[in-house]
Computed example of a mutant assay.
Amino acid sequence: MGNENDVKTLREMAGLVTPMALRVAVTLGLPDRLRAGGAAAVDHLAEELGVDPGALELLLGHLTTLGIVERVGDGYRTTGFGANLCADAGTGLHNLLHQDTAAGRADLAFVDLLHSVRTGEPAYPLRYGQGFWADLDEQPHLREAFDRQMTWRIRQRVPKFVDAVDWARFGLIVDVGGGPGDLLAAVLAAHPDVRGHLVDLEVGPARQNLGDRAEVTQGSFFDPLPAGGDAYLLFDILHDWDDDSAGRILGRCAEAMPASARLVVVEGIRGVGAATEMDLIMLVHFGGRERSVEELTKLAEPHGLTLGGVTEVPGDHSVLEFRKHPI
C-alpha cells in the first residue's frame, strides 16, 4: 500500500476539477464581476450570466474553498487573492485561462495529450478541426489575445534580452515573425543608430509599436525574407514548429543573409532553464518542441549556418548566434 501523503499528493496533481473551475470562473468573468460590482447573491448572478443557479452555487462553493471568493451575507465577492485573476490585474492569468483566448483555448487540447504522445502530432487540430495558426488567421480576437500573451511574457525580460546581445554591431535588424515588435522596439530605443525591419502576417500592432526607424512588412517566414540585413532575429519562433518547418524558416533566413550577417535565435533551451512543462505545451498546441543547443545546431547546419556562441539569459531563455559558412 502506498504512502498516504504520496497518494494524496498524486491525486491532487492529477485532479482536473480545480484547474477547470478557475478557467470557467475567468471565462464567466466572476473575479471581475464580484470585485467591481461588489457581493452578489447566486440567483441574481446566475440570471445576469445566463447560467444554472444550482451549478453556479457549486462552482462558487469550490472557489470559496480555494480562497478565490468569500461569502458576504447572502452573496459572494472576490478576495484579494482572487483579484489576481481579474482582466486588469496585470498578471497575465486572465489571458492564459479564459477559454476564448488563444492560450486558454489551446490548453483545452490537453485532454487529447494521449493522441500527441502516440503520434507525435499536435492535439489542437484534433479538438478544433484545424491548427492553432489557422485559427488565429481566421479569428482576429484570438490573434489579439496571442499578441497580448507574448507581450506579457517578455515584458519584464526585454531589458535582459537587450543587454544579452551587442546589438550596436548591426546597422539593420530584420525581426522575423516579430509579432507586435516589443523586443525590436526596445533594441531600437537603446541603440539610436540601429534600424529595424519587422516581418509578420499581422502587422497592425507592430506599426503602432515601432517608430520611423523600422519598416514593417506583411509576410510569412516561410516565404522569401527581406535581403541585406546585418542581423536576422528569431524570437520564440522555432519551438512552435516541427523540425521540417523550423528548418524551412532557418533556410529562408540563410538565403536572405549576406555573408557577413548573423542570425540571432532567442529560445528556451531544453536542459538549460526551459521548463519541462513547455515541452508538452509546444507538442500539444503546435506539434513543436523545445530543443537542445545540439539539436538547434544540427537543424541549422544544412542551411549553411554555424553556431558562433550561446548566451544564457537569466530566466528561461538563451541567445544563440549563427553565422554563415560555405555549404
Rank of each mutant, 00 (worst) to 15 (best):
A87H: 08
G37C: 07
V266R: 08
L250V: 00
D200A: 14
G309W: 08
V310A: 07
E47F: 11
L234H: 02
H317C: 13
G196S: 05
A231Q: 14
A89V: 12
V293F: 13
R157V: 04
Q218P: 05
Q218K: 12
E202Y: 11
A275G: 12
F81N: 11
V194K: 00
D240S: 12
A227L: 11
V117M: 10
R23L: 00
I269M: 10
A145N: 05
L58C: 13
I173V: 15
R23W: 02
L188P: 05
H44Q: 14
N3Q: 13
V313G: 04
F146N: 12
F221I: 07
L113E: 07
R262E: 15
L136M: 06
L63A: 14
A55Y: 06
G228V: 11
P326I: 12
T297D: 12
T79P: 06
P31S: 02
Q218D: 04
A103D: 03
A164L: 02
H98C: 02
G196D: 12
F235N: 10
L198H: 03
L93C: 03
A300H: 10
E215S: 14
V265K: 01
L320M: 14
H325C: 14
T91V: 09
K160W: 11
D32K: 03
M278E: 15
D147N: 02
P226R: 13
T306G: 07
N95I: 08
M20C: 06
L60D: 05
G251K: 10
R23E: 08
A190L: 08
L85D: 01
D137N: 07
T311M: 07
V265Y: 00
P180C: 10
V111H: 15
F222E: 13
D135E: 05
T27A: 05
P122K: 03
A40H: 04
H115E: 06
R143I: 04
L280K: 02
Y76G: 00
L28G: 01
L10A: 14
R11M: 06
F110N: 02
L10T: 15
G38F: 00
H94Y: 13
V165Q: 07
D112V: 06
D316P: 01
P226M: 12
G178E: 14
P224C: 06
D230A: 15
F286L: 13
I249T: 08
L305P: 00
T18R: 12
Y124T: 04
F161L: 12
L320V: 10
L210E: 03
T297C: 09
A227C: 08
D316S: 14
H94C: 08
V313N: 02
R33E: 01
T78A: 01
